[in-house]
Design a protein around this nucleic acid. Structure first.
Lengths: 133, 133
DNA sequence: CGGAATCCTGTAAGATACTG
DNA sequence: CAGTATCTTACAGGATTCCG
């Protein structure tokens, strides 16, 4: 009998499941939204277009690497647009696309849910922590 | 003049910002939602209560460690309830709380957004990849 | 100014084995 | 059955430095 019993079967299942998850739009979107900086960048860009370093200043604490990385993936997904103005010092503006504004609306919905139920979560936590002294 | 110019200033800003983010309900919720397994567990529990190993079997590819960890944090946040029945082999049931069902509703909203705009994202990506051969 | 390339490190996921 | 304890990796995130 093969020794493939517990571990290998689960590993295979995980591979299949990862593929399934990668193909799942919802899961993918959640991964995107949950990214530490994505929410902040979208929020920063909501009022209007901004330059690279303005975003960096507004977000305060982001390294250039992460800012670029975040903006790149958002640009690739059609969430933000990138406009280069080849003046003497280069000028690059970022703005939300229509799709990006739609995403901002979704974030607003999440925000409202969070604000509505935040105290319930807090209460549940305090109770849980009290019970598990 | 002090040598604290670029790096240290940003580090300080990051500390402040981390505190700000930790206190932000929206950001915190996003972090929770984005957790790889949370969405799956909530989805698995949506139809009704389930036992520990049933969830593990349904999710397929989750290690006992991650399953327990996920369930614990969800329980602490008041998203799921944990019921122990001290029979001969112990039996533990997990179920969504009202708050958990509310969260499931939010996930549904996210899902709908994802399904609605997924093709736009796909298109944007293909175009982006084509331009950056 | 707006990035790209490189290296380094902390965290956290996962495998594995064991317990009440 | 329902976990816990431990170990090991992988990779995201950040500092730093240099280029167009």
């Amino acid at each position: 009998m093969a020794t493939t019993t517990a571990a290998q079967r689960r590993e295979q299942a995980r591979i299949d499941y990862d593929a399934f998850l990668a193909a799942c739009p919802t899961n993918h979107l959640l991964g995107r939204l949950s990214d530490k900086w994505v929410g902040l960048v979208v929020a920063a860009l909501s009022p209007g277009p901004m330059r690279y370093s303005d975003i960096g200043r507004k977000i305060a604490g982001v390294s250039p690497k992460m800012l670029t990385q975040t903006l790149r993936t958002l640009e690739r997904d059609g969430i933000v647009s990138r406009t280069v103005t080849p003046s003497v010092p280069v000028r690059v503006d970022y703005a939300l696309t229509p799709l990006g504004r739609s995403l901002a609306g979704l974030l607003t919905a999440v925000k409202q849910w969070a604000e509505t139920h935040f105290d319930e979560v807090q209460e549940a936590r305090e109770q849980y922590d009290a019970e598990n002294a």
